[in-house]
Amino acid sequence: MVISAQLFSFFTAGSLVIIGIFAALFLDNLIKKIIGLAFIGDGANLFIITMGYKPGGIVYIFLPNMTISNFAQNASYPLPFALVLTSIVIGASTLAVMLGLVIVLNKRHDSLSASKILGDESD
């Protein structure tokens, strides 16, 4: 059985999200938690890119020797690629803020354990 590239990609995106949520829930190390969170964002981004994929499609640039109907039928969908770029930038900036906070908190508590730093007394 041959799984199409698109379906496989959707499965990968879904498993990235689930692995990410698992890591955020169950791993105690803050850096590992943050890697898990990055996975969730990556899963969402991969999902969006996959939607723009069209089997056998062409690049969405209108070249001089094309007819409009041929272009409209075969070009892949350009919007997701534009969106995903923005979303990657957002993900990178939140990741930077998170890691910066972890650096500060690591200096203050001398630990990376979430239960120690973010426990009950830290309100």
Partner: peptide, 11 residues
């Protein structure tokens, strides 16, 4: 807040 936001935001 930012960790919880990073679960809810991508969703």
């Amino acid at each position: 807040y930012i960790i919880l936001g990073n679960i809810a935001g991508p969703l």
